[in-house]
Design a protein around this nucleic acid. Structure first.
Lengths: 210, 210
DNA sequence: ATTTAGTTGTGACATTTTTCACGGAAGGTG
DNA sequence: CACCTTCCGTGAAAAATGTCACAACTAAAT
């Protein structure tokens, strides 16, 4: 039962990548795949792949490697990867707009059902395919629409405040595109994607490596 | 000289975050800051911050903590964070478009000077503020315009091929928004941001944590 | 039935990364 | 000028993560 928590986060992340790869392979009609092939495609050592899979007690078998469909199913079940989530996009800057429009395409299991923005003018006029509400209605709307996941693309200074409203509304997971580190209570999962930061890191690594 | 390589990548990444924070503080007129405050704001232990800074032999001092401006400068110099890079966006889907339009805003030190797309029709008609070329002109254009950084937002299957063209043109760093793991020669730095993957990881962690 | 080649599962090992404890320096204060 | 508080630097301990070697197993081939 608590075995779940015992899976290291990086391992879980890798397994998600494995899952995606398995989806591709499955669609291509590949029925078996070895840890070596998986590792090759993902740029990870085969040992590592096997160890990760062993965490969820995968049933790879014998000489032909892993059964694509079966492993895929195992990973999906272990991590709830095929559950559907109801999401909202908070902050309709360009990135927010792009995400609300492409969200469905990027991540099938994510149903974006609402968006928020602090600019009332924009709320009235913008058309992104889902209802747009002003930020002061976040808590109420999240509650009403039963939204469990939030995509946060607001300007840095307002991030913490928005997050709190979202959480009060009942959000359980936040994809944080803000550079601010969110302080959240237990039970709420945050994943940070700091684009500006990533670019800085890239340039730093380029500088060090060159 | 090789001290540089001895800085662990996660530490470098954290220092980039510290740098950004220092920029903010500096702009706010804060002249000194303690490792504790930095850690607090970034959600990292103070010990960790100090250790990271020690890698670049920072000159934090005495009772009042670090000199904001000085530390900022030290980090910037050590990682070349204020160098300007010439970049191109490859793949003008919605995300690509958003990035080429907002790139300057998101990352000041990145000058986006060109974009590429495989759809010739789109190449002719789209207006994103920079010249758009067809993908088969990547190598030549990158060479001609002296571009050193690439933002890769093409569909997964074409990623490796595009990357190779970019590299042949002389690219030194790639921000890879593709789910494919790029195989590149030494000397080329890749940083992966797999949005779909990140969403899956978020949902996995939510599932495990709830 | 036996062999053989190929692949997994895993416990021990190595490395990396984080945490900690404490000496010592800097700057106010009386 | 001595004191006292606050904070940094760092080497050593601890934890987490990744690597490896090898036994066990499977499926096909002979």
């Amino acid at each position: 039962m608590d075995e779940r928590k015992s899976i290291p986060v990086p391992a879980a992340a890798r397994l998600c990548a494995v899952y995606r790869l398995l989806c591709d392979l499955s669609a291509q009609g590949v029925n078996f795949v070895s840890s070596g092939d998986l590792g090759e495609a993902l740029g990870i050592g085969a040992h590592n792949i096997r160890k990760d899979i062993s965490h969820i007690s995968g049933g790879g078998s014998g000489r032909s490697g892993y059964d694509t469909a079966r492993l895929k199913k195992q990973i999906a079940e272990h991590f709830g990867l095929e559950n559907e989530y109801r999401a909202c996009v908070t902050g309709l800057g360009r990135l927010g707009q792009a995400l609300v429009r492409d969200g469905q395409h990027i991540f099938k299991e994510l149903k974006i059902v609402a968006a928020f923005d602090s600019d009332l003018n924009r709320v009235e006029t913008i058309d992104v395919g889902v209802p747009v509400h002003p930020t002061y209605e976040i808590t109420e709307t999240v509650k009403r629409l039963n939204i469990d996941t939030a995509i946060l693309t607001v300007p840095d200074p307002t991030a913490q405040e928005c997050a709190e409203r979202l959480i009060t509304g009942g959000i359980k997971g936040i994809m944080n595109f803000t550079a601010t580190h969110l302080k959240v209570k237990g039970g709420v999962t945050v994943r940070n994607i700091d684009l500006a930061g990533e670019f800085k890191i890239l340039s730093a690594l380029m500088f060090l490596g060159g």
